[in-house]
Amino acid sequence: SSQSQGISSSSTSTMPNSSQSSHSSSGTLSSLETVSTQELYSIPEDQEPEDQEPEEPTPAPWARLWALQDGFANLECVNDNYWFGRDKSCEYCFDEPLLKRTDKYRTYSKKHFRIFREVGPKNSYIAYIEDHSGNGTFVNTELVGKGKRRPLNNNSEIALSLSRNKVFVFFDLTVDDQSVYPKALRDEYIMSKTLGSGACGEVKLAFERKTCKKVAIKIISKRKFAIGSAREADPALNVETEIEILKKLNHPCIIKIKNFFDAEDYYIVLELMEGGELFDKVVGNKRLKEATCKLYFYQMLLAVQYLHENGIIHRDLKPENVLLSSQEEDCLIKITDFGHSKILGETSLMRTLCGTPTYLAPEVLVSVGTAGYNRAVDCWSLGVILFICLSGYPPFSEHRTQVSLKDQITSGKYNFIPEVWAEVSEKALDLVKKLLVVDPKARFTTEEALRHPWLQDEDMKRKFQDLLSEENESTALPQVLAQPSTSRKRPREGEAEGAETTKRPAVCAAVL
């Protein structure tokens, strides 16, 4: 046999249950609850290399294929790409003598399909299967379609040439079993990697079954959420508030809700932002270029202005709740996480202390139980975000031990490091100062900020419009641009040419 590394010779191994799959997660993409704000000051410096380099560890398999027929071997997927077919160049070659004697062998292509993985959001991997055969590759009886790919989820059954000719079961060793999710959700989405997690739940990458488009699904544990919100009269209202707010909003710089499922837990389906959180971008770069800050901040102002015009105060604006559309420097941003939002009543007064301390406005800290506050709290938070983006460190921090965090904020005395700000323009610093004003009545509004000289930049605004146009074009394009080929190089076993392929839609398939 010419099988590559990772293939075992026996096809009769006992199949494990899916609970053996491991679970991976990374930083929070968007969480309903406010958790302790991640610290920006503690960015690790590059460490000196050791005298002796450690040995390379043996790579762990990321997936496993269990053979369902004699003549096929099990495969431990270690590499990122595997070709399957009769050709000797394939990493998994159909060359077992037992297999060659079967009637089905002649229906398999020289290069029938490939399984591979690509880097997705949060640097996690996504597994795909890609059909290159004349007679078809099927996943859970659905045709992939020649020249098309679809994501592979845990426990997928792979069939060759005929939908009933099941050859492998695919085990993704990095994700959960699909069966743990409600059927209504599974009918519409293929669940994938964990993108982030918080005290009350997690955010998962998923794929729409009909279109193969990526989405983010925010899962909120009702049990954990009820415990964490025990002081509230009705904890469920917080989730329902977020859903109702998101459904009503329609702005290019605000995250869109696509679906909602109320089962044992809450499942909020949101558009996916491939670039992750602004927080991670700031930490990764230490600070952002001023031109990049301007492009992002302009969009934040437009989003918050839209919220305020619609009578909504976000109340928890922070870099973790600003998501980026891509890994590119120039990209769209979207505001997310409306769990603490407040729809303005007639009095415009709110007395609930919520939000993240580092970003809270002075009037929030001094008015607990005594007075109210209004939309100006969001403008203060925007000032803190702009400060961080321009400088790479927070204006107020618990680690300045000589003054408490509350006193720093209520006095408006931010930590100004001259040598850092020497590289920032006077106009940018002036806008920061106009937003970090203790008196909410004297603080800049979103309208005033948008009129500030720093943002009178036609090149930046043109760039934003171009990015918007690109997004609109990409969302308007159909996901499947061509029909699967019906040509046949070899006959199917026991049926006429093209008899099955043309009847089945290529579900969740995307043209390369």
Rank of each mutant, 00 (worst) to 15 (best):
243 I>M: 12
244 E>S: 13
244 E>P: 15
246 L>D: 01
249 L>F: 11
250 N>V: 12
252 P>M: 13
253 C>W: 02
254 I>C: 07
255 I>W: 03
257 I>N: 05
258 K>N: 08
258 K>V: 09
259 N>L: 15
262 D>E: 09
262 D>M: 15
263 A>S: 10
265 D>I: 15
265 D>G: 09
266 Y>S: 09
266 Y>H: 15
267 Y>Q: 07
267 Y>R: 07
269 V>M: 04
270 L>F: 15
270 L>I: 07
271 E>Q: 08
277 E>L: 02
278 L>R: 03
283 V>F: 03
285 N>S: 09
285 N>E: 06
294 K>V: 08
294 K>N: 09
294 K>W: 06
295 L>E: 14
296 Y>S: 07
297 F>M: 14
298 Y>N: 03
300 M>Q: 03
304 V>M: 10
305 Q>K: 11
306 Y>S: 14
307 L>V: 12
310 N>G: 04
312 I>A: 01
314 H>M: 00
316 D>V: 02
318 K>V: 02
318 K>T: 00
318 K>L: 01
320 E>L: 03
322 V>F: 03
324 L>T: 07
326 S>W: 01
328 E>L: 05
328 E>K: 05
329 E>D: 08
334 K>Q: 03
335 I>A: 14
338 F>W: 01
341 S>W: 01
342 K>T: 04
345 G>C: 11
345 G>W: 15
347 T>C: 15
348 S>I: 14
350 M>R: 08
351 R>K: 09
354 C>R: 02
360 L>Y: 12
367 S>Y: 14
368 V>C: 07
368 V>Q: 11
370 T>W: 14
372 G>H: 03
373 Y>N: 02
373 Y>P: 01
374 N>F: 06
379 C>L: 08
381 S>A: 09
387 F>G: 01
395 P>A: 11
399 H>C: 03
403 V>E: 14
404 S>M: 13
412 G>Q: 03
413 K>G: 04
417 I>G: 12
417 I>W: 02
418 P>I: 13
420 V>G: 09
422 A>V: 11
425 S>L: 01
428 A>I: 00
432 V>C: 14
436 L>E: 00
436 L>K: 00
439 D>Y: 08
442 A>V: 09
445 T>A: 13
446 T>I: 06
446 T>L: 09
451 R>G: 12
453 P>K: 04
458 E>R: 05
459 D>V: 09
465 Q>T: 05
467 L>F: 08
469 S>L: 09
470 E>V: 13
472 N>D: 10
474 S>W: 05
474 S>T: 07
476 A>T: 13
484 P>Y: 00
486 T>D: 08
487 S>G: 11
490 R>W: 08
496 A>F: 12
509 A>I: 05
509 A>S: 06
510 A>L: 09
512 L>E: 13
